[in-house]
Design a protein around this nucleic acid. Structure first.
Lengths: 361, 361
DNA sequence: TCTCCCAGTGGAAACGTTTCCACTTTTTTT
DNA sequence: AAAAAAAGTGGAAACGTTTCCACTGGGAGA
């Protein structure tokens, strides 16, 4: 028991050749009933289990997939990993998980290691799909893979939210409620092509509705200083009534900070988040947000990889428009000035004569 | 490039034997500077990378750890996995992740597969540490491993929250605020030894303070029917003023349901959660809860496995008392009847003459 | 000058599989 | 009854690596 039994042990205990033992256990060739019985008994006796390592060496398949994401502490990625893992699991593949912490060096290093481990495929979220060294290695070796939450390019499949369209939707939601000066609050703006895409969509949306270019508040960490930063930001943008926050946690935090500043949400400031985490619907006010389906995305990317491995060249493509939906919530409403006054101001072409009020310094 | 280069290719391009090439690349023996140069050039030229599969077969080490948890959709496990993964990563190990969805069959099957893949160790949360088939296999083969969030037994190391003590703490927190009839709301009570342990601690705590045995409300899923169940539960326990909820998400959901029923939290019902998720501190009222450190637990379990692998028999043991802490929050307060009336009732030996009020049917 | 030692090297064996080929025995076909 | 086909079997080769052993030279010590 100390040393696990090998197929040779099984063969010699069953009194047959290794080839025969292999054929019995894999049902990969003709075998007599007698032999079957003897081999199976030997397996039982020795508690034999195949070594996948030996198998992999011979078949050059590992039944293992590399899954590279920034961090599973972020529930969006956690859900995606969950979806991918489940899908791979039911297809008989195991998932080798690496978290990069948004660090391109760790990302590159991790991918090298996974390649050395001969994974059969990859599902990965890279920092920047165009420059990622790791992604290039994967492409060069033609290892089946699918991006997740990265922008698709000409030659890359990707399951991801259509950030640009989603941001447009957010603008529309604000406009419907009569907002005409918006802001964008983002975390880790630099290191993520997704965040940039989202911002671009937001800018485009604002310009489409003849609004001023949205004010941008960029923060480094989930910083404790958010309250102060927010205060300064709002002072610099006194007419701003709506804020698009790049993820729901940050949005909840922002609501808390706004309260600390004596502002009411949505009375003084409307907020729309991004991701659609469950708690967003449990809190008061409920959070208006873009709902996405990270688990579905992870599962989809996994299916794409699986079909690529099988050589079936028709993976199910995500339809961009269905990658998200808008969820209304109490954090979005008509600006206070509107409510008291002319409801008609809440039209699609903003009157541009509204100003923000009572931002108590 | 189609077929990755092997060390043989490197050797023949460098004009040396495979042994020499191996020695150069692993610095595992004497080599001349000339050879070093030639081998390194050949590696560059062929873009050679070691196959870990071949290596593993030879060394019977895979530098891979199996990590088995119920689900990473649950942020507690996600954080734990994150911690474990980081720790393993920096020690040069990769993490093979499996989610069991709380299903003992999947658990057993997954562990078998991981054993076949020859993982060097395991970090795992099993449904029931005493009966888990998978755990038995691991023990039988003497594979280094450490439990996570399971109760430690005589011969098993485990990093986990001291659920029993934590539940006692919760009772004390309620008692300090003058509550004298408590309830316990749990999810998946059956399949988890942790939940049972927590309940036991709660029961013990109540009896210690001469309170009636706590009422138990057990639900199957994150059920939509919670509002109705809660209503019925509170009707059946009219004197109940404090509810201990087995996780923070469920606690937030419970607060929402209570509101739907026209009850105020904490006015009519005080609530204490479990886990200490971040949003708990962002919402209104903030959630009183037991704060735990899942990431630290995951990392700790990983360190235990690593030291076991190295044969160092002195893994850092978690100190039970430091596995959790109580965080005060707005969801816990003096019962409404108390507030209006006699503050002195809030003592350690409850007067037993208090009754619950205004539970509007 | 003769040993002896050691740096440097090549190559075979081993790790645990599967697959292929060759061989024997049985069954089917004529 | 003979020939052909099929079923059943054993064993070697291959997968990519490391490690061990054996062999060469050359330099140091006698």
């Amino acid at each position: 028991m100390r040393q696990p039994a090998t197929i040779k042990d099984v063969a010699s205990l069953a009194g047959c050749g290794v080839g025969t033992a292999s054929r019995v256990l894999n049902k990969s060739g003709p075998t007599s009933n007698d032999m079957k019985k003897r081999v199976l008994m030997a397996v039982e006796e020795l508690r034999f289990e195949f070594s996948e390592v030996g198998r992999s060496l011979q078949s050059s398949k590992t039944l293992t997939i590399g899954c590279v994401v920034p961090s599973v502490a972020n529930p969006v990625y956690a859900d995606a990993v969950q979806g991918a893992q489940e899908t791979f699991q039911s297809a008989g593949y195991q998932t080798l998980l690496v978290c990069t912490n948004y660090d391109p060096d760790i990302e590159a290093q991790a991918i090298r290691t996974l390649i050395a481990k001969q994974v059969d495929g990859f599902v990965l979220t890279v920092g920047d799909a165009l420059s990622s060294e790791g992604l290039k290695s994967i492409q060069r070796r033609e290892i089946p893979h699918c991006l997740l939450f990265n922008m698709a390019t000409d030659n890359e499949k990707s399951w991801s939210v259509d950030d640009h369209s989603a941001a447009l939707n957010v603008v529309e939601a604000f406009v419907e409620k009569g907002h005409c000066h918006l802001g964008f609050l983002a975390l880790k703006f630099k290191s993520s092509d997704r965040a940039r895409e989202r911002y671009q969509g937001f800018v485009d949306g604002c310009s489409r509705y003849n609004m001023p270019k949205p004010a941008l508040l960029e923060i480094d960490e989930d910083s404790h200083a958010l309250t102060d930063l927010l205060k300064e930001f709002l002072n610099q943008n006194p007419t701003l009534t709506g804020l698009f926050v790049s993820n729901d946690f940050l949005a909840l935090e922002t609501i808390r900070c706004a309260r600390t500043l004596g502002l009411s949400v949505p009375g003084d400031l409307s907020i729309i988040g991004f991701d659609g985490i469950k708690v967003g619907a449990m809190v008061e006010p409920t959070l208006a947000t873009i709902v996405t389906d990270p688990k579905g995305m992870g599962s989809g990317a996994a299916r794409t990889v699986l079909t690529t491995i099988k050589g079936e060249e028709a993976p199910i493509q995500p339809v961009p428009e269905l990658t998200f939906s808008f969820r209304a919530g109490g954090s979005l409403a008509f600006p206070a000035a509107e409510r008291k006054g002319d409801e008609k101001a809440a039209t699609l072409s903003p009157p541009n004569n509204l100003t923000n009020k009572n931002l108590k310094n």
